[in-house]
Design a protein around this nucleic acid. Structure first.
Length: 789
RNA sequence: GGGCGGAUAGCUCAGUGGGAGAGCAUCGGCCUUACAAGCCGAGGGUCGCAGGUUCAAAUCCUGUUCCGCCUACCA
């Protein structure tokens, strides 16, 4: 707002307080909805009727209530303190609002001559202009160099004023010269030391960052201008011993980046110690859990080192502090409403404090002020404490910590059970987005370009705990393909549905692929639910992706075509019903990540009642669980993949149908393959199949091993024997390596004795299976070596 | 100064004690009747470096280098 005024060549002082506040409200009407619109566009299903703004009436009431109560409890006080002052914004800032930046500067070594007896002390400082406000110099009482200085005085350079040498353990003997100048009115540490030693506080810099009348000859100069001048004067007096370049962190205003001036000032403070202790304990005792847990450490660290919170701001926009000053006797009255008269002198001349409260003060009350507190409302009873707060780490201190303090203090209970610290979205370079850097990604633009579903899914898929998100368009575009895949799969299903009659549950004929996909659906539903409950959104999204694309689309739908396109009416109806069931469940699993496309498809499906938003999330118990089906499908898929490998590696075009001979040992497995012959022919593009136990290997054939069986692909006239030998050797080498690793374990006595039994069994079984496969591959290789071409 | 996180395939990243994974990119083959924004197949990694614990380490511990972030009153 202030920037806007500046661009029109004016400022808030010219506009005036009332008009300024009106303007800010207008501004807020216009732009305040921006984030809400983004959320709506993202499809966030919030209860929008509960939208609140901290300046709303109800919330103002809560702010006054809290302020007065804390004041009465002695947890709010008004006092002199060194605050962080922004000379441009003309306001105090909380410690949190100060940004420290490494700055190239200089260390000036300045001589402070002794008042009596000649000689001088050398003091190193980065801020020579503040020496005008020095009221002492300090040394460490342990420092041998300065032991003799008790009761000594030095003359302040330029002003030639005597100031005492004091002893304080705070001084670091190893830093600089071991002598510290004390400026209680312009440095927080000096302020503390000044209190201990009862030193005078001389303020030499004013609220504009200019030197005031106490700065003598420098009066009216800007602080930086004064620095230059004073250095010149020191130089000419022979008091500047040397200058070293030096780098240190300097505080800047988070809003306007102006260098902060630590200034002595009367401000309102919250005594946070007792509040922080409670808030800290709530997390320590597990009443509130922070995810991921490493943020708990950060939270404790901050809580343990907290200083009082300066809450007054010398700006016009915000909750005006409910304090009134008696113009007659100076008495301070803190109350929710203006008192009729001063309780001390009965004067009616009371003027309200012009300072407003830090915006985070009202934000800290959010979890209960938005629910009607201080009134005892039903909403409070129902919703407090809330289940989860989701937010970014950058406001863990600003907001989360303070909500914890206020919530526990005023409600007697934590404000939320879980705090989920989400990943921060950065640009593709990994830089934090900021308006000044111009690398801000506008979510609305992204959604225009790629669609909301792709955007949402991308965010979820990238949101691994404890890690920030580098958002790039390629990635979003990749997931847009997934949305498209879902749409196309749905098209296939919709095209084949009979909108009038689908098989009732009892009439269904469950094929192997049916039993398999339903079993997998059950497992995956359970895994996805668990992942979401644990805030592992990337895993949940990954599970959806893998299941829908690589199991449902790649295998199941392809196999389901047998039934859907077949002539058998009963089969067809059953197939339609099951395909639809699986699609509907998949849509429900996807819905949290892709609200729009899932709803769109859902509405087109016969039998879907109402919105998918209110459909129940799939549960494992809804689906049949058939472990045999999973094993049998593995066998079938292994066979098909084996044939495809050979086709691919031998460059056999799909137009060429091939013949195969399957050598299957187990009778049951043989039955499974025979029952699913159509799938094998279709998905591996096979014409003739012979299947038997111990079937001889045809001469011109390539072989793949699957499970404990093998399949020979007849390649008469197509087989390059040298190529096949190469292929087999490659696979044999890989197998031998794997077997070698496992055998090494099994020949290790320590492993057999100490490893858990089930692991040992697992390794043994693995060696057996691999050895069997290796033997078959070797047979095949020998076969080709014998018939060298 | 203190703390946290990262370093794994060309790129972006999952994976916290028992067979190195995904997406994208690359290469080869396919317009196969839902989908070329697709299908089928392939190649590719000393898991930053050095030690240690363990039968077993990408995973646990110690040290170290580089990168990022948070925090801090050594003037």
């Amino acid at each position: 707002m202030e920037k806007d005024l500046a661009s029109k060549g004016t400022d808030r002082h010219e506009v005036g307080r009332d008009k300024f506040i009106d303007l800010v409200w207008e501004w807020r009407e216009k732009y305040g909805g921006l984030i809400v619109n983004q959320l709506k566009r993202l499809g966030c299903s919030c209860d929008w009727s509960r939208e609140r703004f901290t300046m709303d009436d109800g919330l103002s009431k809560a702010v006054k209530e809290v302020f007065v109560r804390l004041y009465e409890e002695g947890l709010i006080y008004r006092g002199d303190y060194i605050i962080n002052w922004c000379p441009r914004c003309h306001t105090a800032l909380a410690d949190l609002e100060v940004e420290h930046r490494e700055t190239d500067s200089y260390f000036y070594y300045i001589r402070y001559p002794f008042q009596h007896g000649g000689g001088h002390l050398v003091i190193a400082t980065t801020r020579p202009e503040t020496l005008l406000g020095d009221t002492a110099v300090a040394v460490n009482p342990e420092d041998e160099r300065y032991k003799e200085l008790s009761d000594a005085y030095v003359l302040l350079p330029v002003l030639k004023k005597p100031i005492p040498v004091i002893f304080d353990r705070y001084v670091d003997t190893g830093f600089g010269t071991g002598v510290l100048k004390i400026t209680p009115a312009h440095d927080p540490n000096d302020f503390e030391i000044g209190n201990v030693h009862k030193l005078e506080r001389i303020k030499v810099i004013d609220e504009d960052g200019r030197m005031n009348e106490l700065a003598g000859p420098y009066k009216g100069m800007d602080r930086f201008e004064c620095r230059e001048k004073i250095l010149e004067d020191l130089e000419s007096d022979g008091l500047l011993e040397k200058t070293e370049s030096y780098q240190h962190a300097v505080g800047h205003c988070y809003r306007c980046k102006t260098m902060i001036e630590p200034l002595l000032s009367k401000q309102w403070f919250v005594k946070v110690g007792p509040l922080a202790e409670e808030a800290s304990r709530a997390v320590r005792e597990g009443k509130t859990t922070i995810y991921p847990s490493n943020w708990e450490g950060v939270y404790f660290e901050w809580m343990n080192n907290i200083r009082d919170w300066c809450v007054s701001r010398q700006i016009w926009w915000g909750h005006r502090i409910p304090a009134w000053y008696c113009q007659e006797c100076g008495e301070v009255h803190v109350a929710k409403e203006k008192p009729l008269a001063c309780s001390t002198c009965q004067s009616n001349d009371l003027v309200q404090e012009t300072d407003v409260l830090d915006t985070w003060f009202s934000s800290a009350l959010w979890p209960f002020s938005t629910l009607g507190w201080p009134d005892k409302t039903d909403e409070l009873k129902t919703f407090y404490p809330t289940s989860v707060l989701i937010t970014g780490f950058d406001i863990l201190f600003f907001w989360v910590a303070r909500m914890m303090m206020m919530g526990i203090h005023f409600m007697g209970d934590i404000p939320f059970r879980h705090v989920y610290i989400h990943a921060l979205v950065r640009d593709s370079e990994g830089k934090k987005m900021s308006k000044s850097k111009g690398n801000v990604i506008d979510p609305l633009e992204v959604m225009d370009k790629f669609g909301t579903d792709a955007f949402r899914f991308t965010l979820a898929a990238l949101a691994a705990q404890g890690r920030d998100v580098k958002l790039s368009e390629e990635r979003i575009s990749g997931y847009r393909h997934f949305v498209n895949k879902i749409w196309n799969a749905a098209r296939l299903v919709l095209m084949n549905l009979d909108h009038d009659e689908n098989a009732a549950k009892e009439d269904r004929i469950y094929t192997l692929p049916d039993r398999w996909i339903l079993s997998r659906l059950g497992q995956v539903s359970e895994d996805i639910s668990q992942a979401i409950e644990d805030y592992r959104f990337n895993e949940a999204a990954g599970l959806c992706y893998q299941f829908v694309w690589h199991e449902f689309c790649d295998w199941y739908l392809e196999m389901a075509k047998q039934g859907l396109y077949g002539k058998d009416k009963a089969m067809k109806e059953s197939s339609r019903a099951i395909v639809q069931e699986v699609l509907m469940a998949s849509l429900k699993l996807l819905h949290p990540f892709m609200p729009y496309v899932t709803e769109e498809i859902w509405q087109k499906l016969p039998g879907a009642e109402g919105s998918i938003m209110i459909a129940g999330f799939p549960e494992a118990s809804e689906f049949i669980r058939d472990e045999d089906a999973i094993r049998e499908m593995d066998l079938l898929m292994g066979l098909i993949t084996g044939i495809r490998n050979i086709r691919g590696e031998m460059n056999i075009p799909p137009s060429r149908k091939i013949s195969i001979a399957i050598d299957v040992m187990d009778g049951k497995e043989s039955g499974v393959l025979r029952n699913n012959m159509a799938h094998i022919q279709n998905l591996a593009n096979v014409k003739d199949v012979s299947i038997d136990s111990g079937i001889p290997k045809p001469e011109a054939s390539a072989t793949a091993v699957f499970g404990q069986n093998q399949v020979h692909v007849l390649l008469k006239g197509l087989l390059d024997f040298a190529e096949e030998r190469k292929r087999l050797r490659k696979e044999i080498t890989k197998l031998e390596k794997d077997i070698g690793i496992s055998n090494k374990k099994l020949s290790n006595k320590g492993f057999l004795e100490k490893a858990p039994a089930e692991i040992v069994v697992e390794v043994k079984e693995k060696v057996n299976a691999l050895s069997l496969k290796l033997e078959k591959l070797n047979q095949n290789l020998r076969f080709f070596e014998a018939i060298r071409d």
